[in-house]
Amino acid sequence: MLLDWEYVAVFVFVGAAMVSLPFLIIALVSPRSSYPHKRETYESGVAPIGQAWSQFNVRYYLFSLMFVVFDVEIIYLYPWAVVARSLGASAFYSVLIFLAILVLGLVYAWRKGALEWT
């Protein structure tokens, strides 16, 4: 089993090297003529207005938080799924309770407008 992951580790390192390979080629091949205007950030062809990093709404936070909560829920479902058949009906009902509690959370979020992007 450890062997599997050693293969994956090789994949990551060789892969990172291969993905970085084009940069080597670029360094050798591409022209280099830097002047200030070229490095200005792009804003439809005019000079950029204001700071790039502006204040954003809390909705991003809420969506990613809901994602984490539901992702953890899915994490708990994977082990059950694998042995679901052999564990039978009682386990199924336990999982049903688990899901129901989380669906309550989804309904609450829905009612409170947390699922809207406005």
């Binding site: 084009p22 940069f23 080629i25 670029i26 360094a27 091949v29 591409s30 022209p31 280099r32 003529s33 830097s34 200030p36 070229k38 490095r39 200005e40 950030t41 792009y42 790039a52």
Partner: peptide
């Protein structure tokens, strides 16, 4: 694309 210039925007 390979021979395009490597531009890093300022303040990036």
């Amino acid at each position: 694309l390979l021979q395009k210039e490597y531009i890093v925007p300022q303040n990036a």
